[in-house]
Nucleic acid binder design. Sequence first.
DNA 1: ACCGTTCCGATGCGCTTGCATCGGAACGTA
DNA 2: TACGTTCCGATGCAAGCGCATCGGAACGGT
Lengths: 195, 195
Amino acid sequence: MDHDSRRRQIAQAVFDLISERGMEGATLRDAAQRAGVSMGAVQRCFSTKEQMVAFVMEYMNQRITERVQAQIPDTADPAAAMTTLEHTLAATLALDPPSQAETRVWLAFTAQAAIDPALATVQRNQYTGLADLIALLIGAAQTHGHARPDLDPVQEAEALITLTDGLNIQLLLGRHTPESARTALHHRLEALRTR
Amino acid sequence: MDHDSRRRQIAQAVFDLISERGMEGATLRDAAQRAGVSMGAVQRCFSTKEQMVAFVMEYMNQRITERVQAQIPDTADPAAAMTTLEHTLAATLALDPPSQAETRVWLAFTAQAAIDPALATVQRNQYTGLADLIALLIGAAQTHGHARPDLDPVQEAEALITLTDGLNIQLLLGRHTPESARTALHHRLEALRTR
DNA sequence: ACCGTTCCGATGCGCTTGCATCGGAACGTA
DNA sequence: TACGTTCCGATGCAAGCGCATCGGAACGGT
């Protein structure tokens, strides 16, 4: 088997373990067993557990990025920037079980990043990429007259990301249903529209 | 020494450990050493580690509740409901180091609650209490003409709590400064005011 | 066909963990 | 004063952890 694909295979196993049992469930033995390989293979792919966890973090961020960018149509229609914006933001929400699993892992890493400056830097960069994309969409919506022109796209992008983070926590705790979270996002975006 | 005060003493030690090293740093031995007692004392106070962690969670929630309610003046002036509301919400933000420590612990428990339904229930109840308080303040501001009368206090309280949760994550990751978080909260509240 | 190299499954080691157990100090009571 | 009870510090123990090590399988070059 290929080396990189094995790394991803193990990363997916660790991902599942963290999603089900939290950061403490990410042990080398369980990772190997879940991935269907031996511990030796895990140690070959990752020289230390810290490296393995770091790789899983990148793996998670990549998955999230893919999920978000899948909402952006290939034929980027700038006229539909507002709906693209809504779909993009909705893609960051834990609305269905796979997304919820991803968000549980995200939350575990975020808690870790709060006490580990190195992880915090990685997460900040991930956020920056998303914020740039959101700001871009807001700007496009403005140029086509679908969003209020008095808004600062960058500042508004930050506020929207803050909203989705808060919604995700409420979703994981069961204080928001997928439907209520969707409508909360929708109402928030309505306030940006030109009327 | 009194029994309950010893429990709180140990809980404070565990609190500090979680704040510095995360959930994995909360071991019985470290808790005992940090609290300046022996492991036997810890085992006497808490029959199992799970109970100890649960007690620390209540301890944390109590601390947060006290910090929030300290912002509500004794002579509850309903005319100043909007400023009380802002102070109350600001009290839930990680604006200074002690609050940041508290919020790191909160985040650690929230990540745990995302994979443990029992903890999720405890956290939901804590949120409910805060939401009720916020909704009350919004209602008071409405009756005195300081907040838009077309708002649903309950729904708006939920939205504000979602905002503070998101702001806290951004604060812990270093994507928000205390000042920028304060202004973000302020601008959000301005939108509720009658104009 | 031989061998050097690469890869990986298995095992071992030192350490830490949560929890059980024990021995003695402190204290109220007869 | 002798004793029973309560409390707690110290130690022991089985399990699980990350990591190091080893032996054999697979494979390509000569």
